[in-house]
């Protein structure tokens, strides 16, 4: 069957099997490999993209189900050569290590801030709770999202301070 998905603002049309997963449409057909996969059971969230503006796990959605709809991936975050504040936040606050969960985390973070521009730490933890990170212990992801929120609120964002620390 033929499927057309508006991918980061550009229509992508491909002939696909009905069973093709959305994550494979994005990675294999459209060639955007920033979206990863990490499990088969919709638990890990490395495959999160936006479908019609909402984060979904693209390993659990058929490409056919996204036909005629719009999908935004990590490659669609940077606008006009300018990184999205959540991307900057993750760099500033060391919100990533191996980088594998990062694209999914970024998409969820962007959606959260669009809904709730000034989230608390608890709200951020809740928002990313369907996505696993094996490297960061989540601490710096939370700080990264806060950093982006503060930047967008016009708050005091210069180089983020090294986290609270006690030295003997």
């Amino acid at each position: 069957m033929e499927v057309t998905i508006n991918l980061n603002g550009t229509p992508e049309t491909h002939e696909v099997e009905p069973r093709l997963l959305l994550v494979h449409f994005i990675r294999e057909k459209a060639g955007l490999r920033g979206t990863h996969w990490g499990c088969d059971t919709s638990n890990c969230g490395t495959c999160v993209v936006w479908l019609d503006g909402k984060p979904v796990k693209s390993c659990t959605v058929l490409a056919a189900m996204a036909d005629g709809r719009s999908v935004r991936t990590v490659e669609g975050l940077e606008q006009g050569g300018q990184l999205d504040p959540v991307q900057e936040g993750f760099m500033e606050c060391h919100g990533l290590q191996c980088g594998f969960c990062t694209p999914g985390m970024l998409m969820t973070a962007r959606a959260l801030l669009d809904d709730n521009p000034d989230p608390t730490e608890t709200e951020i933890r809740e928002a990313i709770s369907g996505q696993l990170c094996r490297c960061t212990g989540y601490e710096n992801i939370v700080r990264s999202v806060r950093w982006a929120a503060e930047k967008e609120q016009g708050g005091p964002v210069t180089e983020s301070e090294t986290p609270a620390e006690v030295t003997a």
């Binding site: 919709s42 984060p55 796990k57 969820t108 809740e126 928002a127």
Partner: peptide, 9 residues
């Protein structure tokens, strides 16, 4: 129930 992203769909 599940997690926020799963709950979206």
């Amino acid at each position: 129930i599940a997690d926020p992203v799963v709950r979206n769909f």
